[in-house]
Amino acid sequence: MSASSKTAVVTGASSGIGAVYAERLAARGFDLILVARRADRLNALADKLSTTHGRKVQVVVADLAQEGDLARVEDVLRRDESVRLLVNNAGIARFRPFAQSTIEDSGSQIALNITALTRLALAVLPGFVARNEGTLINVASILAVHALPVSTVYSATKAYVLQFSRGLQQELATTGVKVQAVLPAATETEIWSDDSGVPLSALAKGTVMSAGDLVDAALAGLDQGEAVTWPSVGDVGLWNTFDAARVALVGATQTGTPAARYTKA
């Protein structure tokens, strides 16, 4: 994938996965619009990338959990016809048992991981479809298919991201628009913090991937045409088997009658 006078928008761009996506996409020739809450980090990254890669880099300081800020970014996506790629990376995690959490914990995860991601996708996709060109990358998580005792809401939000992406892939299958879901395992980013409930130091050594390796693998998957990318999974047959079982399970529901085990006397 390459670009010429085309723009990539990256949310959550001030650090971690988002910052690496910004660097890699600038190296591929994209101009950039970087979105995050921290102006100092965004401006420093913008200066670095414009100097290193000679690309035009704009900064949009925004908290996507806030209505006014989210609306401003939506407006950029609708109006800027140079946008050809959106990385929906911004997200938040709060790892604790649901019964011990607060409504703020759940609300913040839903607002950023689901609502903002959905609205930004809706803001950009009509333009992509009209131009028959564009790429949407939604960053989910391996916890989209697995829940831990402390990840109930987070896993639910990432399951939404995966299924949302797969639905869009079917809707857009006959167009020139690509949608990729990326499912990282534990990655060395600031999502792991005391605020999240699980600091990075609590994760088992050898299980955490660097943000650079994660993004490089995800972009390689995109280049290879993958719809769903598992950056740390070596045996792609595991995913193929899982997905085939899903299709078979859904097919098995189409009987119109209760299963025998529910009707025995």
Rank of each mutant, 00 (worst) to 15 (best):
V161K: 03
L34N: 13
L172R: 03
A46N: 13
R96N: 08
V208K: 08
S4W: 06
L49T: 15
A265E: 11
P149C: 09
A252M: 07
T157L: 02
S165V: 02
H53R: 12
V179A: 02
T175I: 04
L70F: 11
G134Y: 05
I137K: 02
N43H: 14
V236E: 10
A248N: 13
T189Y: 12
L168H: 05
G134P: 06
L120F: 01
Q58F: 02
V57L: 12
A147N: 11
R37W: 08
T102D: 04
S15K: 15
T255N: 06
Y262V: 03
G107Q: 08
A111R: 12
P231I: 04
T157M: 01
D216T: 13
N138P: 07
A19I: 10
G68Q: 12
D47L: 14
R41F: 11
A111F: 00
V236D: 12
A19K: 14
G127C: 02
V182W: 07
G127F: 04
A217M: 06
V250Q: 06
G256Q: 09
R28V: 03
A211C: 07
L117Y: 00
S82G: 05
A202M: 11
L214C: 14
E190P: 04
A65S: 15
A211G: 09
A26I: 12
S108R: 13
W192D: 10
V129P: 00
L222T: 03
K178A: 10
L200R: 15
S232K: 11
T229S: 09
G107N: 06
L125F: 00
E74P: 07
S232W: 07
G68P: 03
L86Y: 09
S108K: 12
Q163H: 11
G206P: 03
V215H: 08
G234I: 01
V10R: 06
P126I: 01
D80E: 15
Y160C: 02
R28C: 02
A181Q: 08
P126N: 05
N89D: 10
S50E: 13
V228M: 02
V57I: 15
T253K: 04
V57F: 06
L219H: 00
N89H: 10
V233F: 01
A90L: 09
R131L: 00
L219T: 01
G127I: 03
R28S: 10
